[in-house]
Design a protein around this nucleic acid. Structure first.
Lengths: 141, 141
DNA sequence: TACATACCTGACTAAAATGGTCAAGTTTAC
DNA sequence: GTAAACTTGACCATTTTAGTCAGGTATGTA
């Protein structure tokens, strides 16, 4: 299973965006400074967020990014999927006709990982950006 | 977050053990053959399981491993902890006095990951080896 | 007591993933 | 026309993963 800092950065950046994009687009430079994330890395992340229609961009001076939906419509699942952090548990080698390890049937843990994935995803599907904003109404910068 | 095949192998091997140790200790060789896991790798895993009192070993000819508790007393949490697969989400860089990223307060995602860990661990704390045995009463070998 | 079968330990490593950096653009507002 | 902003893609050092390999030690059985 993977869940690394790329996903975490994405969430941090989007929360930042949600709090500051009320008037003007927010530049990645600002997010980079406020959140302490490398600008180059942010660009990679936002490129994916944009492809997945989570943010919109405006070019040019005073340009930047804006959320493309309301914070309560952006679930964490959407974010993680966008940056390729599928909550993927370890795969059994081949899901061929034969089963998992070349054995005739599914391996013992097969259903277990499926259940786990469901369990975790349900957590991410409930949480939206808005929820995070509420929990962090104290100022961060 | 990590959850890799080492943890999965540990679970597979222990389920195997639970099903076959009723009369004699089970040799790693047998488990290796039945589950398709490298013998050398199994030895590493069982060394840790033994240190954590999840299995007991008998040496010599006809020796092998036996569960040291009943299947319903062995939770998946115990297993994962034993093989060092803490369900660890990404850490914020330093949990120093200052906060997460050198900022004055906790980063926005801090509480989120904590909640997530709790959510996942609760899943593992509920599941025992016995549960897995029930789900797999069809024969696997 | 021989010896096969088991457990035990630690060093090593190829391949993949992670967490970025670097360079070279293209667009657009002012 | 130029600076600020986005865009793209190649590149890479480090760490983790998923084992392998080699060389033991212990012990039940004949």
């Amino acid at each position: 299973m993977k869940l690394t800092s790329k996903g975490r950065y994405a969430v941090m950046a989007l929360v930042d965006l949600a709090r500051f994009d009320t008037i003007n687009p927010v530049s990645l430079r600002d997010i980079s400074l406020r959140q302490g994330i490398s600008l180059d890395y942010l660009e990679q992340i936002f490129s994916k967020l944009k492809k997945n229609q989570i943010v919109k961009s405006t070019r040019g001076t005073q340009g930047g990014y804006v959320l493309s939906k309301k914070p309560n419509e952006i679930k964490l699942t959407n974010i993680f999927n966008a940056v390729d952090e599928k909550v993927k548990t370890v795969q059994c080698k081949k899901e061929s006709k034969k089963g998992c390890n070349g054995k005739a049937t599914k391996c013992v843990t097969h259903n277990l990982w499926d259940e786990l994935e469901t369990h975790i995803n349900s957590f991410f599907e409930k949480k939206s950006l808005e929820d995070l904003l509420k929990n962090n109404s104290e100022r961060i910068n």
